[in-house]
């Protein structure tokens, strides 16, 4: 399955805290376009709204304002329309403890109603590719953290999804395992042609995976949009430093500012159509003035 375009248009997400009714802005204003088949890393400090974006992209949360489009549909509104198209790898493996590795990997295929034989054949194939051929019948508690995350990766890829989303999926593993899994993940995503978004708070991780790195402010807006290939290997140190400073100061460092993608406000408004035009044009003006 080839990838789909992901587009955030003036995306905003707020939560009302149940305890005191205070309104929290998790996503201030997001505008970005991720092209089909692109592999993009999103980096931002803890609590900047990365997981909130993740939830909106999966369709578990509705945006407060603006839109998030996958292809030309919204994952929240058209929830069931995305069956079989989106797969996720979460921070924790989130395997079902009562299912063996094989049965865990079969889950997404069961949900789309594939024949059991075919489910097993595909799931076995992916477990083998991830080096778990000897562990198909093992229960999650019999596997190490790294192996469990491999099962979770197999469970995502078995769908050959158009969209692959990973939220801090490797952060809790030791460095060697994390690097290995990250590499596998990116290689497989490229092979599948899926559009992949990897969310992380670790700069090193972000720089090592993506075609692009989106740097988020807190609350989330795109501070910088960096095409890694634009930076020759000898200037990577400088790039790292610039992103680091950007993350720390919550303001885009000058060295990367000129690369940040500026979307013309008119184009955005056109895309959004007449709905909420008034409010959105206000926001677009604000965004442009930034």
């Amino acid at each position: 399955m080839s990838g789909l375009r992901i587009q955030a248009q003036h995306l905003r997400k707020q939560f009302r805290q149940s305890a005191n009714g205070v309104l929290i802005t998790a996503i201030e204003q997001l505008d970005f376009v991720i092209e089909p088949g692109e592999i993009v890393a999103v980096v931002g400090s803890t609590g900047c709204g990365k997981s909130s974006l993740f939830d909106v992209m999966i369709g578990l949360q509705a945006p407060t304002a603006g839109r998030l489009l996958i292809g030309d549909r919204e994952p929240y509104r058209d929830f069931n329309g995305f069956r079989g198209l989106i797969a996720t790898v979460f921070q924790q493996d989130r395997l079902m403890p009562w299912r063996s590795s094989l049965d865990n990997v079969c889950l997404p295929l069961e949900l789309i109603g594939l024949a059991p034989d075919e489910q097993h054949r595909r799931a076995r194939g992916w477990l083998e590719r991830l080096g778990l051929a000897a562990f198909t019948d093992a229960y999650p508690h019999e596997l190490s953290g790294g192996m469990r995350q491999r099962v979770a990766i197999a469970r995502a890829f078995v769908l050959q999804p158009a969209i692959l989303l990973a939220d801090e999926s490797f952060g809790h593993l030791d460095e060697v395992t994390a690097a290995e899994l990250r590499e596998t993940f990116v290689a497989l995503a490229r092979e599948c042609g899926s559009t992949a978004v990897l969310i992380t708070h670790q700069l090193e991780e972000a720089m090592s995976v993506g075609d692009r790195v989106l740097v988020f402010a807190k609350p989330a807006t795109v501070l910088a949009d960096i095409r890694v290939a634009d930076w020759p290997a000898e200037r990577r140190g400088e790039l790292r430093e610039a992103i680091q400073l950007t993350l720390q100061s919550n303001r885009c460092d000058e060295r990367i500012a000129r690369l940040a993608v500026q979307q013309p406000a008119d184009a955005v408004i056109e895309q959004l159509g007449a709905r909420d035009k008034h409010e959105q044009s206000d926001q677009a003006i604000k965004a442009n003035g930034r």
Partner: peptide, 26 residues
């Protein structure tokens, strides 16, 4: 965590109960 995981795969209501709820509360 498990509910979000299975929801991301878009189960039907009956699948949700058969594949997640029942085994989880067994």
């Amino acid at each position: 965590e498990l509910r979000d995981m299975i929801h991301s795969f878009r189960p039907s209501t009956s699948q949700l109960f058969r594949k997640l709820m029942l085994p989880a509360i067994l």
